[in-house]
Simulated assay, not measured.
Amino acid sequence: MATVTMSFILILFLSLISKGFYACSLDNININTIRSGREIQGKPEWNVTVINNCNCPQLLIKLSCKGFQTVENVDPSILSIMDDKCLLIRGKPLEGFASVKFSYAWDPPFILLPSESIVVGC
């Protein structure tokens, strides 16, 4: 009986540890913004890369983008602007360790932060 109890506790412990190593969250969504060196209608262009730094896919990724403006068209299949939130890749999954890129032109650059996502497949 003690062996069964110890085995159960060991399995539970290992399960909790492995969840801790593989759990994904908004902290795994990294957003890098760099200036491209181009100007569009007198505004600097910014290249944005959104990276899912986790092995699990995340979907319905929304970025806080209050006041987001651009003089350069952004492909709505990559970034859909909805008031103060921007939906990434139409809500489709961003696979583990994958990235998506877009560019916009405005001055000053916007601080884009992940605000929502759903982790799937882990």
Rank of each mutant, 00 (worst) to 15 (best):
R38L: 06
E72V: 14
I9H: 08
F13M: 04
D83E: 09
G42H: 06
S18V: 13
S15D: 04
S18L: 13
N30Y: 01
S36C: 01
E45S: 12
C24P: 01
Y22W: 04
L60D: 14
G20A: 06
F68N: 14
W46Q: 01
I17F: 08
N52S: 06
I51K: 12
S15T: 11
P57F: 10
Q69W: 02
S15W: 02
T70C: 09
C65D: 00
L59C: 09
I17H: 01
T33H: 00
V48P: 03
K43L: 06
N52L: 11
L26P: 03
I31W: 06
W46H: 07
F13S: 06
G42K: 05
L63Y: 00
S64R: 15
F68Q: 09
T70W: 05
L14Y: 12
P76N: 10
G42F: 02
Q41L: 14
C65L: 07
N53L: 10
N28I: 02
E72M: 13
I34R: 11
L12I: 11
G37V: 07
G37R: 13
F68K: 11
S15P: 03
L59A: 05
N32C: 04
S64T: 15
L79Y: 10
F13Y: 07
S25E: 00
C65E: 09
F21E: 01
E45P: 02
P76L: 11
K43H: 01
N32Q: 12
N53A: 12
L79A: 11
C56V: 01
S36R: 10
E39R: 07
T70A: 03
L60C: 10
G37Y: 05
P44M: 11
V48G: 02
F68I: 06
M82H: 10
L26Y: 05
V74M: 04
N30Q: 15
I29C: 03
I9P: 05
V74N: 13
N32Y: 03
I31H: 04
N47K: 14
V71W: 12
E72W: 03
K66S: 15
K62D: 10
L12D: 04
E72H: 02
C24I: 02
